[in-house]
Nucleic acid binder design. Structure first.
Lengths: 378, 378
DNA sequence: CCACACTCTGAATCTCCAA
DNA sequence: GTTGGAGATTCAGAGTGTG
């Protein structure tokens, strides 16, 4: 096994730093303490489903880990929101430290908490990429008829920083959506039926998320072998889908009963086999090939005539791979742009070449043929 | 007409105080100063479309080389999140003072600003009721393939306080949505075509909102005669729809060029007549493409006369998409059934509408046209 | 007059690598 | 850090023109 292969299989490919990290496990305990105990810059993607602060009670924790008591009439709104903000900023800061430079985070929430989470993300230095609307195909109605049916939840996708070269599998998303760009509104049913985990007859967790939601997120924003962390693991939907898709995962969960259910759930799963997790790649994933390589390899001979659409413009290939268009010279891209009066141009698709039957074929076809022959040799 | 009915139609129902207030006018100037000069507790509903603080980078070109006309106006530039927050909290505070005790506010924004606006609303004492997703039927694509198509904007609906008995015309919303509860995700086309105001050939305002959006909001959350204030009036969509629906309005606008366009626009409008703006008291029917969508989008105007086969029965379209047939009201299906003495009826095929030449065309043809423009409606 | 082709545009945080 | 060149990238709707 060569070094390149080893790097890929250990998930170190394409990442600047990758400290040793035990993955595919659940860490019991407070998520802020647990994250601070993990090595900085070690995680590719974080998915977080934090408490929604529905009535400012329940499972809300202060930054020091102590539990906030249930709704208390003595608390005014400001101090309650302030407590939620402190908690939010603390876990977002710990998450930020954990991410690799090109890492990213997804969070989910409702109108009760998502505005505070979104503002905190911006304040902590994350760079927002999209807000995504999960449109519930089967939401719970508003029984009293006092408001609109609350039929969606909001997700926020953010990179670690403005300069992060985050992972986005654009072509995979497009393929999943009938070959049109995936939009920011996703129609997905809520988690019901067999997918809904039971614990002694009752539902195991009150807010279990559908696997379809995590599936789309992980296909869109991770590569095989990436490390995915979920600091509010619950019953482990993130881990289940990560395992299915051949991603490594770490879950943090404070409640033993949830952790136990999650462990059983994930242990019983089998990952998709081999090629099943492959996704559509675009041209960006292909190795770059200078036009000059085709010339020096004889795929395109110097002096060959190239034509724009409808033969309205023509140019001649020179020995160094540049073009001569009526006396002006430059790259295939520069001359394509000049021919159209545009600021830029993809010369591979603009220029055409005559095949043996005199038909015009895009230059890009020659590049593809060149790739196939060189790949076979390598 | 009984007292209750009179109160509803004059907009005095359920309102504690109603100071004298000059309405149906545009105030030129800074919205915070202008709001502070108006009497406290005098406004029923505020609709606010504040600057989004987009933070755009360089030029953006479409794949065909054309340049996107960016929102680069000075009014959208802020030096920092902190500066934007100060601005936001200042106008929200002034708006809060203006509202009647049972008043409410709607704001709109994108992921660039909406989280800060939402958090500020909570901090200023407003009580969030819903977040609403405006799903754009025809959004601008992501030309570089770097993110999900940004296909929606977010609105927040909030009452002045937790104790406000805010106005929500539940049955009108249900009637507008084929007698199922209106959800929190709304599919509405962006503002284009004849509706898009021009000023010397160019678009008059870079971010003009569709009337269908304001139509739904005002039908849902106001009564005839209510005072609606828009502190970022722009080209006056709020005022135009308010006038159409028989609501009083106040617009505040800093830029003279926008105010002038808005003034002309609203002056040229006629309000809907009498019964057309009455909203449904509620009843029953069945789902699919909501007839109300055709009404709010302008495919069928309120007040339009519908005819049964051979013109043996007639009915008038009301503002919420229900019909008035000789005093009896209900959905297109209910009224079709009633007209024939049958238990049920497909209103789409029973009712006909006059085309420009006076010929009767089935309502279903309009639905088909609507489907084509909104891409399936679902 | 109809069918079809072509053009224009919209609140957008819109590339990546080597030198 | 910056700069410059290679080269990848779009959907729906409305308006206009042509045969």
């Amino acid at each position: 096994m060569d070094a390149e292969r080893l790097l890929v299989e250990t998930g170190l490919s394409g990442r600047k730093t990758a400290p040793r990290l035990a993955t595919n496990r659940i860490i019991r305990g407070d998520c802020i303490e647990a994250m601070n105990a993990l090595p900085a810059g070690s995680v590719d993607l974080i998915f977080a489903d934090p408490p929604y602060n529905l009535q400012l009670g329940g499972d809300l924790h202060r930054p020091d880990g102590s539990q906030v008591d249930a709704v208390d009439d003595d608390w005014d709104k400001f101090s309650s929101f302030a407590a939620y903000d402190r908690f939010t900023r603390a876990w977002l800061k710990a998450a930020h430290r954990l991410l690799k430079p090109d890492g990213a985070i997804w969070t989910i929430g409702s109108y009760h908490n998502i505005f505070r989470v979104g503002a905190a993300l911006q304040d902590e230095g994350y760079w927002l990429l999209n807000d995504i609307v999960w449109r519930k195909a089967n939401p719970m109605p508003n029984f009293k008829g006092t408001r609109f049916t609350n039929a969606h939840e909001t997700l926020i996708w953010a990179a670690k920083s403005e300069n992060s070269r985050y992972c986005f599998n654009y072509h995979a998303m497009k393929a999943m959506n009938e070959d049109v760009q995936m939009r920011s509104d996703w129609l997905i049913p809520i988690c019901t039926g067999n997918e809904r985990l039971k614990d002694g007859g009752a539902k195991a967790h009150p807010t279990q998320k559908p696997e379809a939601l995590l599936y789309r997120i992980l296909v869109a924003c991770t590569r095989p072998g990436d490390v995915v962390l979920d600091p509010f693991f619950g019953t482990g939907t993130t881990g289940a889908v990560a395992k299915l898709l051949g991603r490594r995962w770490i879950g943090i969960e404070r409640e033993e009963k949830y952790a136990r259910v999650a462990e059983q759930r994930i242990a019983g799963l089998l990952p998709l086999e081999g090629g099943a997790i492959e996704i559509s790649e675009g041209k960006r994933a292909e190795p770059r090939i200078p036009f000059g390589s085709l010339v020096e390899s004889g795929f395109v001979r110097p002096g060959t005539r190239l034509w724009g659409p409808g033969r309205r413009v023509g140019a001649s290939v020179r020995a160094d791979g540049s073009l001569d268009m009526a006396g002006r010279t430059g790259s295939i891209h520069q001359m394509g742009a000049a021919a159209q009066g545009l600021p830029s141009c993809n010369g591979w698709t603009f220029w055409h070449i005559e095949d043996d039957d005199g038909r015009l074929v895009p230059l890009d076809a020659r590049r593809q043929a060149f790739r196939l022959t060189t790949a076979a040799g390598a």
